[in-house]
């Protein structure tokens, strides 16, 4: 039997192709980072630009900003923040949160964002993925999915994992890919915050079904967890927040350790 492209991808040499990416994720509100950050002496721990610069200097491959700004009026501060990051940082970054229509995405593109990430808005209006991909190219569109394991099945959750849907995660991700997602950011709500490691079983299964890149999120607690998710699930990137922000894992150390495990790292 002829093996599928996905099988070939999984069985391919882990060092073929691009380097595996390490992605710190920053929550921002009204143009300021909201989680405590203390991995390095900062003049202003709430300044996303300074943090982004620090992370890029440490060797982060990419950054994700999740904007939790509540009101539409305050979105202007987000746009200003995106511009400031683009002016000062020389690595790619994604911005997610508050993107419901083409105009929201367009202003971020023209402010220097490399990609936008959509989550609940895409579940509520799947055609948004097609619209954004047609307008800006699939490389601009990351679909973020929050998933929880319930009674042997994986269900998509909304609003940061608080609202369950009846949509099966595997099916939604395939639909997102076919509609024009350029990348999937999958967060396991069961693993998120536990620091017990990524959900390698689910990530491996999803990755086998995809021909676009997959970013693993949720559960990072040690350097070994990153090695595991790259070797076991062969995901393209791994994202984490607190372990980086609190200095529990330093990116240069992490990259050394991944290289020592034979993983292709920039």
């Amino acid at each position: 039997m002829e093996s599928s492209l996905a099988d070939q991808l999984l069985n391919a040499d882990i060092n073929a192709g691009v380097a595996k990416r390490i992605i710190p994720c920053l929550d921002v509100k009204d143009g300021r980072t909201v989680k405590g950050i203390n991995f390095v002496d900062l003049r202003d721990a709430g300044d996303p630009v300074e943090l982004a610069w620090q992370y890029s200097a440490q060797g982060a491959d990419e950054l994700v900003f999740l904007d939790i700004t509540a009101t539409h009026e305050k979105r202007k501060t987000t746009v200003e923040m995106v511009k400031a990051v683009a002016r000062n940082v020389n690595i790619p970054f994604t911005i997610g949160g508050g993107i419901h229509e083409v105009a929201d995405a367009e202003i971020l593109l023209h402010s220097g964002a490399d990609k936008i990430s959509i989550n609940s808005a895409a579940v509520k209006n799947p055609a948004l993925i097609n619209t954004l991909a047609n307008a800006f190219g699939i490389q601009f569109v990351v679909v973020a999915v929050d998933t929880k394991h319930i009674d042997g099945k994986n269900y998509v959750h909304l609003n940061g994992g608080r609202i369950k849907t009846d949509i099966l995660t595997e099916e939604w991700i395939k639909e997102a890919e076919s509609r024009g997602a350029g990348e999937i950011l999958l967060t396991s709500m069961d693993h998120d915050g536990t620091k017990n490691g990524f959900d390698c079983t689910l990530l491996k299964k999803i990755n086998q079904s995809l021909t676009i890149p997959l970013i693993a999120s949720g559960g990072a607690g040690s350097k070994q967890h990153f090695t595991d998710v790259f070797l076991e699930a062969n995901v393209d990137a791994a994202l984490a927040a607190s372990v980086f922000h609190y200095g529990e894992i330093l990116i240069p150390d992490l990259k050394d350790s991944l290289r020592a495990s034979g993983i292709k790292i920039r």
């Binding site: 070939q8 991808l9 192709g17 990416r21 676009i212 890149p213 393209d236």
Partner: peptide
């Protein structure tokens, strides 16, 4: 190629 498309990331 039997790799993911787009070619996205550092090479």
């Amino acid at each position: 190629v039997n790799l993911k498309v787009p070619h996205m990331g550092w090479n």
